[in-house]
Simulated scan of single mutants.
Amino acid sequence: MASIPTVDLRTWRTDGSPAAVDRALRTAGFLLVTGHGIAPDLRAAVRAQARVFFGLPEEAKRRYAVEVGERGWLGPGAEANGYAEGTETPPDLKESLSFAAEEPSGDPAVDAEWFLPNTWPAEAPLLRPLVADYLARMRRLSDDILGLLGAALGEGEDFFTRHTTHPTWGFNINWYPGAGTTGSPQPGQFRIGPHTDFGTVTVLDRQRGRGGLQVFTDEDGWQDAAYDPDALTVNIGDLMSFWTEGRWCSGRHRVLPPPVDEPAEELMSLVYFYECDPGTDVRGVDSHRYLREKLDAIKVG
Rank of each mutant, 00 (worst) to 15 (best):
G77R: 01
R63P: 05
F54C: 07
V66D: 04
E113Y: 00
L130T: 07
L74G: 05
A100W: 00
P76M: 13
N118A: 11
E79T: 15
A80P: 05
S105P: 04
Y64Q: 05
A100V: 00
A65E: 13
E95D: 01
K94R: 06
V68Y: 10
W73K: 06
P117F: 02
W114F: 13
P117M: 04
F99M: 12
T89K: 08
A78H: 01
A132M: 09
D107K: 01
V52F: 08
P91N: 01
L93K: 00
T89H: 13
V131A: 06
E103K: 12
A78G: 09
A65W: 06
N118P: 13
E113C: 04
D107A: 08
E103T: 15
D92S: 11
W73V: 01
W120N: 08
E59D: 15
N81K: 13
S105L: 06
V68K: 09
P91L: 03
L74V: 09
G55Q: 11
K94N: 00
A60S: 14
P90N: 05
Y83Q: 12
T119H: 03
S98N: 11
Y83F: 15
S105H: 02
G72H: 10
Y64F: 10
E102T: 08
G106F: 12
E67N: 05
F115A: 09
A112Q: 07
E102W: 15
A65K: 13
D133P: 04
F115C: 09
P129C: 09
E67C: 03
K94G: 00
L130G: 04
V131T: 14
E70F: 02
V131M: 14
A60C: 08
W114G: 03
E123G: 08
D107P: 03
P125T: 14
L127W: 13
F115Y: 15
A100G: 13
L93V: 04
P108G: 06
A101F: 03
Y83P: 00
A100C: 01
E79P: 07
V110H: 04
